[in-house]
């Protein structure tokens, strides 16, 4: 018996971007009971290998499908819209000003200017807000894709849009990460002195 390598196929669910994660979890548990290597420790080496292989797909699939962003990235790649390396530092034009300011604040904090901290925290909140906006945009696009005929122009159009929204999201995600790192590093410097007897 050959094991499907496609995550949707393995889970036996429809190829949609909007998923009921509760149902997905239930399915994950069912398939775990069926395939987990623990269930095969008294079986032949061949069956054990198959169980290992199947469970790896199951776990990788669950990790991918339960997360809306990873799920979308997966589907994009499978449908021939590779998301690419995404290591580009190109700033989305609408964020130019904010990113410029952010870099200044990060530099100030690095120089030891503690007053940059509250500003950075504000900026962080701002970016988190932007990300939430993007997420609802994504949900709408997911619905658009799911409603369209598979392989149709509308579906392709939706995937195209999803890809560019995801790129923007990743950019903001990286900004938030940079801010967190800077704030963490600043906090570590102010660590209390170890208590001694």
């Amino acid at each position: 018996m050959s094991i499907p390598r496609d995550f949707y196929e393995f889970f036996g669910i429809e190829r949609r971007l909007t998923l009921d994660t509760g149902a997905l979890q239930k399915r994950f548990y069912e398939l775990s009971r069926q395939w987990h290597p623990d269930r095969f420790s008294r079986k032949s080496a061949e069956e054990q290998l198959q169980a290992l292989d199947a469970t790896a797909i199951l776990n990788d699939g669950y990790r991918t499908l339960r997360d809306p962003v990873k799920r979308a990235e997966y589907l994009l790649t499978e449908e021939g819209f590779p998301i690419g390396e995404q290591r580009s530092r190109d700033v989305p034009p609408e964020l130019l000003e904010e990113v410029f300011e952010l870099n200044m604040m990060l530099e100030e904090l690095k120089q030891g200017d503690a007053s940059a901290r509250p500003q950075l925290e504000n900026a962080r909140e701002n970016f988190v807000g932007l990300r939430m906006g993007i997420d609802s945009e994504l949900m709408a696009l997911f619905a658009k894709y799911d409603a369209a005929e598979p392989q149709s122009e509308t579906a392709k159009q939706a995937l195209h849009e999803i890809r560019s929204v995801l790129n923007r999201r990743r950019y903001i995600e990286n900004l938030i990460r940079d801010v967190d790192k800077a704030l963490d590093a600043g906090a570590a410097d102010a660590e209390p002195v170890e208590e001694r007897l």
């Binding site: 290597p37 290992l52 469970t55 790896a56 776990n59 990788d60 669950y62 990790r63």
Partner: peptide, 8 residues
């Protein structure tokens, strides 16, 4: 914190 078995 990836569930094992896992692959990539």
């Amino acid at each position: 914190n990836s569930t094992i078995p896992a692959s990539a």
